[in-house]
């Protein structure tokens, strides 16, 4: 059981990294990016290919995965710069699907649908499966903590404030003299770097990646994580990701106890439960379990004498 919990801890950590990255783009800047899994794929493939084919060290591979995803993120941000809301969502979704289809059909890049197998993991052989999982849990927790710290700083900085401004009203920010396009591109660059890093870590953890992995299912889980935890705040992102993995896994143990349903119905029920959970969250706690805390602007009861206009 404890080995299973460790492995799920790693999964939760990787989900949390993705949720943190997604939070910068969607939570802070309000840009609905449904192409999450596409950037995850870029990171995973970049690191997988570099470590497998060119023998790069894993740390360099993960860094390169983050950088590659970030560069692609900048490109996507520039392409979609005039799109907002649903339009941006659909284009980014299209980007992720394009990535998946390109990787399926361009066999020369990474074996197409056969996928890349045998991606190295740090000390995988030496530690054995259980030791390796524990080590990786440590790595993932450290990475999550580091990103959390960095993104927390980002959130509280003037940069974070401008992003929130863009989310609330782009035009006002523009009027205030900020280069909105530049900020959006930067938000994408930072957020997608985290997504790419998560993808790279995932590849090194499981040792295998294939285009089928990058189906929209994962995007929806991360979206659910953010909505559950609380959009726009980093604690919510991490808590939400852990909750989603806990929820996905715990339903495995609950469903078999429901009498009179077959395994097939049980599987369908698990998917229904996820949909119901999403609906319940949106209906009852639309801002998530840990809502974003915004600085309260106090409006003074009366205008101080020093500021009052003199006739």
């Amino acid at each position: 059981m404890e080995h299973y919990l460790v492995a799920m801890g790693v999964t939760a950590g990787i989900y949390a990294i993705m949720a943190l990255g997604m939070n910068v783009i969607w939570g802070m800047a309000g840009l609905i990016n449904l192409g999450l899994v596409g950037f995850f794929a870029v990171g995973a493939y970049a690191s997988g290919l570099l470590t497998l084919k060119l023998g790069w060290p894993i740390v360099a591979g993960v860094a390169a995965g983050a950088v590659a995803a970030s560069l692609v993120g900048v490109a996507v941000a520039l392409i979609t710069v005039r799109l907002r809301g649903d339009y941006l969502a659909i284009v980014t979704l299209g980007f992720a699907e394009t990535m998946r289809i390109v990787m399926s059909n361009e066999l020369w890049i990474a074996n197409g649908t056969d996928g890349l197998s045998g991606i190295p993991g740090p000390f995988r052989q030496a530690l054995g499966p259980h030791g390796f999982n524990l080590l990786f849990l440590g790595i993932v927790v450290a990475a999550t903590a580091l990103l959390f710290f960095l993104f927390q700083r980002l959130d509280n900085s003037p940069f974070g404030r401008v992003l929130r401004g863009i989310r609330e009203d782009e035009q006002v920010v523009q009027v205030a003299g900020k280069n909105v396009v530049m900020f959006k591109v930067k938000a994408f660059a930072v957020g997608t770097a985290a997504l790419g890093m998560a993808g790279a870590l995932y590849g090194h953890f499981t040792s295998y990646i294939a285009p089928d992995l990058f189906a929209p299912l994962l995007t929806l889980y991360i979206k659910l994580s953010l909505l559950a935890g609380g959009l726009g705040n980093n604690i919510g992102a991490v808590v939400g990701a852990v909750l989603v993995v806990f929820f996905l896994e715990s339903t495995r143990f609950i469903v078999p106890f429901i009498p009179e349903i077959s395994a097939v119905q049980g599987a369908a029920l698990r998917e229904i439960l996820i949909a119901v959970a999403l609906l319940l969250i949106l209906r009852t706690r639309a801002r998530g379990l840990i809502p974003e805390r915004l600085a309260q602007v106090r409006i003074p009861p009366s205008v101080p004498a020093s500021l009052s206009l003199k006739p």
Partner: peptide, 30 residues
């Protein structure tokens, strides 16, 4: 779930919690 990510989680549960000695039935090559 015909999804490698979900399948790996399920496999870990089968192996670590249910202590199965054999897994049968995977369909998609990925």
């Amino acid at each position: 779930q015909t999804n490698p990510e979900a399948a790996v989680r399920a496999a870990r549960k089968l192996i670590e919690v249910n202590k199965v000695s054999v897994i049968m039935g995977t369909w998609a090559s990925a």
